[in-house]
């Protein structure tokens, strides 16, 4: 039997979720023997033209146009999409800027910082434009499973993958849900 394919993407977030993935330690060996990890920050595939995969996992909120394209593409290419970590599930720490106008946020970062002289807000066609608000993944595309947590516990991801391998949509039990 062919191994199910797995892709993970990193949108607006700190990579803590992927760190947590590596924290699975020796359980990684077992998981990677049962699934094929395709595109992922860990494998460092740069090509975001995804192949068809069985499970897509998103770390991070949807904060700019690139994020949105990646998420929409991943949704088309995968059978099950999992929002992973507080940023993907709720918007997370990035939503701090949702209480401010986008222009203020950019000015704050590039012009008004104490160490900046004659700062300008970078603008180039290669730089993805910031969206007005950071959104959780399920505000952009349909999501099949959720693993909250900042970072999510390694065991929570392992649990969800095992549920998927067993042919079930994963729902975390109450004692596995944590927002911290």
């Amino acid at each position: 039997m062919k191994k199910p394919k797995l892709a993970t993407v990193w949108c607006e977030a700190c990579a803590g979720c992927h760190m947590s993935f590596l924290d699975l330690d020796e359980a990684l060996v077992d998981i990677l023997s049962r699934v094929e990890l395709t595109v992922s920050p860990i494998t460092d595939f740069k090509d975001y033209a995804f192949p068809q995969v069985d499970v897509g996992i998103v770390e991070g909120g949807v904060g700019n146009k690139e994020n949105r394209e990646v998420i929409e593409h991943l949704r088309q290419q995968c059978r099950f999409l999992i929002a992973w970590g507080d940023c993907a599930v709720f918007g997370g720490i990035n939503t701090l800027r949702n209480w401010l106008p986008k222009d203020d946020v950019l000015r704050c970062a590039y012009v008004k910082t104490a160490g900046t002289v004659n700062g300008i807000i970078p603008a180039h066609e290669d730089i993805p434009q910031l969206l007005d608000k950071v959104l959780p993944v399920n505000a952009v595309v349909a999501v099949d499973g959720y693993i909250p947590g900042c970072p999510p516990a390694p065991e929570a991801l392992a649990y969800c993958l095992k549920e998927l391998l067993a042919g079930r949509l994963p729902v975390l039990p109450a004692d596995m849900i944590h927002f911290d």
Binding site: V89, G91, P136, V143, Y146, P148, C150, V171, L172, H178
Partner: peptide, 26 residues
Amino acid sequence: PQSGDCELQDLAYELQMDHLTVPQSF
């Protein structure tokens, strides 16, 4: 999350609120 001193959060865990189905107001 660190102190656990929040009844709202306790309920979210208890009722398995693992995501929101309604948009946040911000």
